[in-house]
Amino acid sequence: MVKRKSRKAVSKAIKTSSNPKADISSPVITTSPLGGGAPYSSNNRRMTTLNIVPRFVNNASDPYRFLNFGERLRINQFALDLFRSSPLVNSAITRKNEWVCATGWHPIFCGQNAEWGKLAIDYLVNEALATCNVAGPNYTWNRTLLTIANQIDLAGDNLVVYAPYDSGMRVAVYPSTLVGQRTLDKTIQDGRYAGSQIDNGVIFNRGNFPIAYNILQDTPEEDFILTLREAALIFEPTELCPRGVSLLASSLIHLLDRQDIQYYFNRHVKNASKMPIVVNTEQGTGQDYVGGPGAIEIPGENDGQLIDASSFTSFNLMVRMAQANLSDLR
């Protein structure tokens, strides 16, 4: 299932990692124990499966395997969707991480040999950290840290792959979805790591210590393994799990509901706000009525015609007619 790739193949993969594509349709996605395949139901999102109370936890009794790869993937997809579409989520996560690392992070030398330290700082600032990311110079040292921090919030973790060059090292930041496995096997069948335990793409030695990561590529044949010396999975463990969990997981349903409701609120207010009452005056219709898409004639006895204000016997009648029109459009 999983085989070890040569260093050449690994470095090729690192070079092409600026737009890494994992075949996310292949992993087995199990269904919720409550039935249905989706943790969230919404017509707005074209997900018609109805779950009354969606649950992410498939097997709560096993803390080490409480989220399988498919469930993680789904949570991360929604989290990323929210990050890009919800101003609340985007600004909360971005603002926090900007305070964390958008500025500062200038290296300082704390050793004894001050002269050597000056040379080292010069090398770090002007060479190593200035070109620290394989994705190019826009990913400065601070922006790289910011990207990693954002990914920790959104996906729970991300893989930092070390890409050595002549006199230093760069990093390629892999999204969390690239670390995974295509089946729910718990043991690797062949290759260098045959017999080793694997969980959520993390490979363990006999002492249950993580030693390598399975990287998904476009096809199963292209998948490869990175060892702990070649890459580091960065996350903040909060539960007994070899992977991080998205910070949005606990509030995901709330956030999706909130966004849906806000979407329909906005539609309603937009509909309500394009309801002018068209009234004839002696000079003709008012300036607002130009036959544009927003202009609507009041229905009723004079349906289809512009109504002369003098034809109203009372103001309440006019208001009632306007309200009837509003409710027709709801």
Binding site: G104, H106, P107, I108, W116, G117, L124, G168
Partner: peptide, 23 residues
């Protein structure tokens, strides 16, 4: 960098005595 001769080689723990300024 020390391996490549870009920086003078040192043998004490100074090679990892670095920290960062914070924002």
């Amino acid at each position: 960098a020390m391996d490549a001769g870009r920086l003078p080689r040192i043998t004490n723990s100074d090679w990892r005595a670095f920290d960062f300024t914070m924002p």
